[in-house]
């Protein structure tokens, strides 16, 4: 289990990198009025077919079958966290269409992990593959913040 939601975000984004995505869009939405925290990681990677989707969602809490290549616990862990915190988990993907992972949870839920060090997660994703355009949209009731790794880089170069 991850202690911070930002680690979940990093973990899911690593899947996007593994799927050869060139663009990863991360949204964090804090809605205090309605008591929701919604995380979304969307990529333009190679996507998954129905069978692969079923595997990533249901292969949790077993032991040996987990060692099969490319099937891990990350997605199942995030699903568990969101459902444990009164939220919903949704994943949409199709071959060639990219993948979108959405996890919601109650902002005030006692078990909800803190968002944690989101900066470090974004830094790690950018450093992992400087060519990928990493975007972050962070919205709260009053404020919003946008980040794009391609804006940081001088034209014609990628970020460090």
């Amino acid at each position: 289990m991850f202690e911070e939601l930002s680690l979940h975000i990093l973990d899911i984004a690593m899947n996007s990198l593994a799927a050869n995505a060139s663009k990863i869009e991360i949204s964090v939405l804090e809605n205090h009025q309605r008591d929701w925290l919604i995380l979304r990681v969307r990529d333009n990677g190679r996507g998954m077919d129905a069978a692969a989707l079923h595997r990533v969602l249901h292969h949790r809490a077993t032991t040996k079958t987990l060692r099969k290549k490319n099937i891990g616990l990350g997605v199942a862990l995030l699903r568990q966290t969101s459902e444990m915190c009164g939220g919903h988990f949704h994943i949409r993907s199709a071959p060639g269409q990219g993948t979108s992972v959405t996890a919601s949870m109650r902002l005030s839920h006692i078990d909800r992990p803190a968002l944690g060090d989101l900066n470090s997660s974004i830094l790690a994703i950018c450093a992992a593959n400087p060519k990928v355009d990493v975007r972050l949209h962070y919205r709260t009731d009053k404020n919003q913040y946008h980040f794009s790794s391609h804006e940081l880089a001088p034209k014609g170069e990628s970020c460090p």
Partner: peptide, 16 residues
């Protein structure tokens, strides 16, 4: 190594 287990063990902080 930045897989799920790596991240859970603190790979992010190590990389940073």
């Amino acid at each position: 190594s930045m897989g799920t287990s790596g991240i859970a063990a603190g790979a992010r902080e190590v990389m940073k």
